[in-house]
Design a protein around this nucleic acid. Structure first.
Lengths: 203, 203
DNA sequence: GTCTATAATTCGATAGAC
DNA sequence: GTCTATCGAATTATAGAC
């Protein structure tokens, strides 16, 4: 990518990512043409190739940037709780808040895996596994401490993440329930699903 | 190329649906061409238009047939249980069993909604709502009877269906856990998530 | 019922002017 | 850094032969 120094180009790069994110989420990667992206940005199609090697790299960059941002935000937002129930609640609230704020990015990251080259797919999968491992560790610690009652931490991890991420598919601002209310309900469901119970007082 | 002149039209229609289902699930609707489908069937692209008005109708027909089949199978498989916990367990087992047996159809019905025309989208949405209503009624009855503890039956419905359907995205035959084991674990999680408890003995 | 041939678009990507 | 112009290939869908 032959990006030159200059604020004009940096702004164009941001605009391209924003337009591509929106269009890929709305219509799907394969259904969106480079010309459509260019039109949304306000440049000609040829100019896009100053910022991306090809259409595939544009998609991969969006997905990888999203997952890296997700992990970085978790590292910054994670609390210092030790009680597994509090840690799970923190994770659920973080996950929902982040995912409702980035509906398009989330949608792309889960829907367009098929359109990645093998190398890019591997990079994305690795990052997704890292994020899943955050929850899995919470569940495993909680089970070991007797705070959670679950049969398989990996399955519970996948089930919970699917449940939480699914919000992105139906949430609309101004709907029947506020984001805060949705968050509270899912915290309750998540805790209940792993049989969260009172942590035994250390003896 | 195999010559198919004179072959049975009904069989070709089935072959087209099967090929389209697999290709759409593997690569996405927008990324699959009519020529690819024709090649998989063993006919020329033009012959496909004897069986579908256009590519969009082919997708819509697959999705609507899938959802109608899902509803019909539920009607045939639903037990006669009255205990909400048993009804929920029946639903969870049915949902998982059906979805693991039709991974491609489920994937398409979930991923390709945005490629439907407004009219076809409305038809698909209506069927999906009917299926969701099955679970929502179970949850509402269970809550009313004191068997479940939940805050919002609609949210619990969406959360549970997302959790269950998510299995399709990672399940592989021959994986670490058998389908029966996966089913049992999800039954446990689903019941726990709605705070299933002992039904009070009628006085 | 299926074929061949093709019309009419659209696609991703590149070259070169400024 | 962006534009104009364009190449070669691919797309959906149709027309007419058999």
């Amino acid at each position: 990518m032959a990006r030159r120094t200059g604020s004009n180009g940096e702004q164009t790069a941001r605009d391209i990512r924003a337009a591509a994110t929106r269009l890929f989420a709305d219509h799907g990667y394969a259904a969106v043409s480079m010309r459509q992206i260019a039109q949304a940005v306000g440049v000609q199609a040829g100019a896009l190739y100053l910022y991306t090697a090809d259409k595939q790299s544009l998609l991969a960059d969006l997905m990888i940037a999203h997952l890296e941002d997700l992990l970085a935000n978790w590292d910054a937002a994670r609390g210092s709780a030790v009680d597994p129930r509090a840690r799970l609640e923190d994770f659920v609230r973080f996950h929902i808040r982040y995912h409702l704020a980035r509906v398009d990015e989330v949608f792309i990251a889960y829907m367009e895996l098929r359109n990645l080259s093998p190398e890019n797919f591997a990079r994305v999968e690795r990052l997704r596994r890292l994020y899943e491992a955050v929850l899995e560790e919470i569940l495993q610690d909680g089970a070991a401490m007797g705070a959670f009652r679950l049969t398989d931490a990996r399955i519970s991890t996948l089930g919970l993440i699917a449940m939480l991420t699914g919000i992105s598919t139906w949430y609309r601002a101004g709907g029947r329930l506020s984001p805060d209310r949705i968050e509270a309900i899912y915290v309750e469901m998540a805790l209940a699903s792993v049989g969260a119970q009172v942590v035994p007082v250390p003896s």
